[in-house]
Design a binder for these strands. Structure first.
Lengths: 138, 138
DNA sequence: TTTCTTGCAAAACATTTGCAAATCG
DNA sequence: CGATTTGCAAATGTTTTGCAAGAAA
């Protein structure tokens, strides 16, 4: 973890990501910067995001659809995406270290990062599906 | 697993993906189709890839850099990417079912798919790093 | 002063879309 | 015939680049 060279732009970008709860994309971040009265260039926001991600302060997530999303949580965690409504939830159960060890042994790699993206159906969407099948549904 | 409506284009795209060993991107696939004498429109290749992925015949991988990659292996497996040279290797050790169960219990989701992307350093790159530190290196 | 960072517009990609023509069932 | 698929070019969306001007070390 190297020393971070903070600039006003990087700090503002970081504040937006940190205060967000919804894993915003770059363009969502730009909108929120505008809402807060900042008007940085696209390039600056992307540069800041890249810089902060490389510095390890934020994480870039490619969750499978369109734009990258950004996350400022620093505990190790994974993500699960609802395939119906798109909600993204955090998963704090750590991936078993033994599994990772086995992978290292089998592949010869030294693992530096594990990114897991689970897909599934969230409780709310399952609820709707159930309700749609009951007589009192409509 | 529904019935697949094969067209010459879809078959040709599938053949390319299946015979590739390197998880090609859409544009690599287009190049290889050209090399085989086919000249399908971009849109057709993308349509075919999407169709085949939705049909479950191939898998779309978003491994973190640029374009999606495609994989025709049908056994459950994961991927590990070397952060030095970019090589992608397959990981056949299955993610522990118990972990997935715990995630379902904790999040309330029903999990339908688990995609793991590990990053690390491959044996070859580690070898080079070692060699660079020994006296007889140059 | 030397290096890094910003801002802007343009470029580079990756992927999708609209629509007419061709093909399939 | 009716539905699906193809091909093309243009549009869209995301991210990067080139470069001049500005700020920081």
């Amino acid at each position: 973890m190297q020393k971070i060279h903070w600039t006003p732009q990087r700090r503002a970008v970081y504040e937006v990501v940190k205060s967000a709860h919804d894993h915003p994309t770059a363009s969502m971040i730009i909108d929120r910067l505008h809402a807060r009265g900042h008007r940085f260039a696209y390039a600056t926001v992307y540069n800041s995001l890249r810089y902060l991600a490389e510095a390890g302060v934020i994480r870039e997530l490619r969750l499978g659809e369109g734009a990258s999303r950004y996350d400022a949580r620093n505990e190790e965690h994974q993500h699960i995406v609802c395939e119906r409504c798109g909600t993204i939830e955090e998963v704090f159960e750590p991936v078993p270290a033994a599994w990772q060890k086995t992978v290292e042994a089998n592949t010869g790699f030294v693992v530096t990062e594990t990114q897991v993206v689970l897909h599934g159906v969230c409780p709310a969407c399952r609820g709707e599906a159930l309700r749609a099948h009951t007589p009192e549904a409509h």
